[in-house]
Amino acid sequence: MFEARLAQSAILKKVLEAVKDLLTEATFECSDSGIQVQAMDNAHVSLVSLNLRSDGFDKYRCDRNLSMGMNIGTMTKILRCASSEDTVTLRAWDNPDNIIFIFESQNKEKLSEYEMKLINMDQEHLGIPETVYSCVVKMPSQEFARICKDLSQFGEAITIACSKEGIKFTAAGDYGNANIKLAQTAEADKEEEAVIIDMQEPVKLTFACRYLNSFVKATPLCAQVKLSMSGDVPLVCEYQIGDIGHIRYYLAPKIDD
């Protein structure tokens, strides 16, 4: 039997909102250590890696490893039926055809059950090598979302240049161009408002806006986002999910023809 309970469904609602633009279906790998998802978008340009540790759940039981193929659109619809304060329980039996979502209101007077059919999926698992990145930038997630949205008006791609002076985002298009520079924070009153740059070597990479704008749907999950970059390798855009896990987005850079 598999059973995982969160005291508040808000986290799971936000996770679904953070992946639904990129993924139509995904396999949820459930084991004793928690729930893991690794899936590429339809165009195989980006990769989503989600990790929810079992010790972050209020209750977690997984008697045997399960691979459950889920339709992300349906799952999003179901999670939208939960209030943020509802308790959510995921339940499946061994060799399941279905997964059950159970929402219980705070006053325990409303109990909702949604059963979703699982799908058989051919899954490709990609091996992500351990990488030491040339630049690792931590910045406010809302600021990153704002920059991606603003610069998307000027072009289809954003160039991110990171040096010890700061991080510069540039977009160029037919109507003009724009750039935004952020300096490393000298003194941040609040940790979550800080811009922190850990640079070994300067990096300049270009990424498609449409994927970055999908990644920033994870903004409600965490006040800070971590961007890890090295020359000619995919960007890692990471959001912590409370003390339960993280979501990482990998995006292949655009390269010169």
Binding site: H44, L126, Y250, A252, K254, I255, D257
Partner: peptide, 14 residues
């Protein structure tokens, strides 16, 4: 001009 490569050209299918 820049072109887009796929993520699988960086990470091998296991």
């Amino acid at each position: 001009n820049k072109s887009q490569r796929g993520i699988e050209s960086y990470f091998k299918v296991q």
